[in-house]
Design a protein around this nucleic acid. Sequence first.
DNA 1: CGATAAATGATAGTAATGCTATCATTTCAG
DNA 2: CTGAAATGATAGCATTACTATCATTTATCG
Lengths: 224, 224
Amino acid sequence: MPTLTFKLNDHLYVRDPQHTQLGLRIISKSIEMIDELGFEQFTFKKLAHEIDSTEASIYRYFENKHRLLLYLIAWYWNWLEYRIDIFTSAVADPKEKLRACLRVIAEEKKYDPTFEFVNEEALHRIVIAELDKTYLTKGVDGYNQEGLFGGLKSLCKKISGIILQINPTYEFAPSLVSTILVTANQQLFFANHLPTLTALKADPERYQKLYNFLENMAFRSIQA
Amino acid sequence: MPTLTFKLNDHLYVRDPQHTQLGLRIISKSIEMIDELGFEQFTFKKLAHEIDSTEASIYRYFENKHRLLLYLIAWYWNWLEYRIDIFTSAVADPKEKLRACLRVIAEEKKYDPTFEFVNEEALHRIVIAELDKTYLTKGVDGYNQEGLFGGLKSLCKKISGIILQINPTYEFAPSLVSTILVTANQQLFFANHLPTLTALKADPERYQKLYNFLENMAFRSIQA
DNA sequence: CGATAAATGATAGTAATGCTATCATTTCAG
DNA sequence: CTGAAATGATAGCATTACTATCATTTATCG
């Protein structure tokens, strides 16, 4: 099986980490470490030590640790859209298309061997815990101009399009979609840490219940 | 008019800032500064300088800057619930009650002279930009045990109760409410910075449109 | 194969941050 | 008026997030 790579926005990195051994180790190990330590406790120094390299070398791939996070999360959105494309391409009915999207969004994330160097399960935990740090920063507008949020925006646009096929008069398509994308992660976080804020429980069925919640919210919101 | 104060959880502070001049200045000025600088750029050293005090003195009120943020945002949720109580107490019909809640949640936040030392407009911007930093941290579980998220949880419970009055069979009440509370802020942020992710525009009518979005989503989701 | 450039490693240094600690001074309460 | 509480002043410290420099290894290409 060929190892696929995503073409991510140039500004996310200094040197493309997908093209070298060291780059791939940086991605691989940083996912592991951010997942374990949390983004605040994670440092390039610690990462360098773990991959038997140096801080300086890592800085040759990523301008700073925030851009690395932007990179990883952009990768995640690309991966999600790639999965959504797989599961919607053969579907004609827009309602079924939307259901397929929601299934991909709500499903438990597991290691995808198509991308050897990425542990999607850990990456999903990173997205859950750190997503907001990508855009909730004084630099948003600049990042946005550089196109660093292209992955999320593209996904949002795609799903909004499907919703408008179902009901062309629905006024809030992009708001509903961004709400769904963000809340899917948030509800899983609440299930683990703030259970009073969610109807989900920290059990294996939570992904199914999350799907039910999102499907109910989406289809009822958009009905004419 | 008497100046009201909220009884906030003891663990949020070392010494209660509402009881002293210096404490009130810390609250007042920190809101201003976090709003301007963002939470990352904000430091106790800078704050000390602005209020003509010292770093050490501020540490006598707040264990660290993260607890100060928790304090401010807890205050905000208390204030929101207080406003919701005002606007729902006289209303009998649960549907109207829910509408009143959504109006308070979606409305433009303005300075409330009941609380002289708090600029609610700035505080709302802080909530929009920094809310997630209160719970998206490795320390959540500890904070939660200390009861530091009581304000948000209480609000969520109250509104969930109203929803269950409208439809006792709705399965996802707390999820819907937490989604609404979080998304209300998020959509306003997107309107200002990532407009492709929202149907709102960065204009004065955005609060009305936000209300419409939330009302549509809420009432349709919970209908039997 | 050898020369040259590119990539990486090794090491050092710096300003800022997030504290902690100590002691002196002011303010307040009984 | 006295003692305690609150505040100020100052110093210090480990860590972080970089930047800079130079040496060494590795890949590339004629």
